[in-house]
Computed example of a mutant assay.
Amino acid sequence: MDNEHDVLKYNFGLVGKDISYSFSRAYFSEKFKNENLPHTYQNFDLQDISEIESEIASTQNLKGLNVTIPYKEAIIPYLDKLNKKATKIGAVNTIKISKKGKLIGYNTDYYGFKHSIKPHLEQHHKSALILGTGGASKAIAYALKKMGITYHYLSRTNKKGVDFTYNELTEDLIEKHKIIINCTPLGTFPDVNICPNIPYDGISKGHILYDLIYNPEVTKFLEIGGLQGATTINGLDMLKLQAEKSWDIWNQ
């Protein structure tokens, strides 16, 4: 990091909706404190994405933003430029603000997911089911593709890009897809007794169940998977990895 960053105080923040629980604010505030950096990190809790323009205009020395649910796709029209990976993924979770005030979109969810699941992958992990079709799921799909893992999208309704609805899921389909990734908010605190409605009896010790949720640490989805002998991973490592990648981008 250059000397300029040691001296100047910058603002960073998270764009989302109902984000008082946010991982990012606590993570970066702690990071700035530990590394003796004068920066601040705040939440931009927006009821509508159109509010982003006035928020950016009224925040001095804003250098970078993270973006979370439900704005990872909705933010794109407000950006001046996307990097190649974000363009291919079609979702943004990191924004760099240039010295001239240009907003450049990146995706670090892809990086976080790839590097957090990689140590757990074995030969038989060849196909995945992605539960949910939001912005985060697009980064997951891109990472799987790059790792040579085939995937199918699962959603409540039969729409473009969806391979199966929950009603069509069978134990046989679960058995065939040895990686199951929950990209839905089902099971997030405080609604901890909810989980995606899939045939859990098809899960075995050969499976990986990955939940993007990190609060609670063990969701109902992971708990049931664990009882079936599956390897279970929550979203915490992915979040830490994507946060550090965001930090690298802001400081390039």
Results as ranks from 00 to 15, higher is better:
residue 154 L to P: 02
residue 212 L to E: 03
residue 236 L to P: 02
residue 158 N to Y: 12
residue 169 L to N: 01
residue 103 L to M: 02
residue 3 N to M: 15
residue 27 Y to S: 03
residue 33 K to Q: 10
residue 19 I to F: 09
residue 15 V to T: 07
residue 161 G to L: 10
residue 179 I to S: 01
residue 130 I to H: 11
residue 40 T to M: 12
residue 226 G to I: 06
residue 7 V to M: 06
residue 41 Y to I: 03
residue 194 I to P: 04
residue 244 E to C: 01
residue 235 G to T: 13
residue 57 A to H: 06
residue 154 L to S: 09
residue 148 G to W: 13
residue 84 K to N: 10
residue 100 K to P: 00
residue 188 T to M: 15
residue 107 N to C: 02
residue 126 K to N: 04
residue 22 S to M: 08
residue 156 R to D: 10
residue 64 G to P: 01
residue 57 A to T: 09
residue 204 S to P: 10
residue 91 A to Y: 05
residue 54 S to L: 11
residue 120 H to I: 05
residue 42 Q to P: 00
residue 239 L to D: 01
residue 77 P to I: 05
residue 239 L to H: 01
residue 189 F to H: 15
residue 54 S to V: 11
residue 158 N to H: 14
residue 20 S to Q: 13
residue 28 F to L: 05
residue 163 D to R: 13
residue 63 K to Q: 08
residue 100 K to Y: 11
residue 205 K to T: 04
residue 215 N to Y: 04
residue 31 K to L: 15
residue 221 F to I: 10
residue 112 G to Q: 04
residue 165 T to H: 10
residue 242 Q to Y: 15
residue 21 Y to T: 13
residue 85 K to Q: 13
residue 87 T to E: 15
residue 186 L to F: 12
residue 206 G to D: 15
residue 56 I to S: 07
residue 201 D to L: 09
residue 61 N to H: 07
residue 38 P to D: 05
residue 214 Y to E: 05
residue 161 G to Q: 11
residue 236 L to E: 01
residue 199 P to N: 13
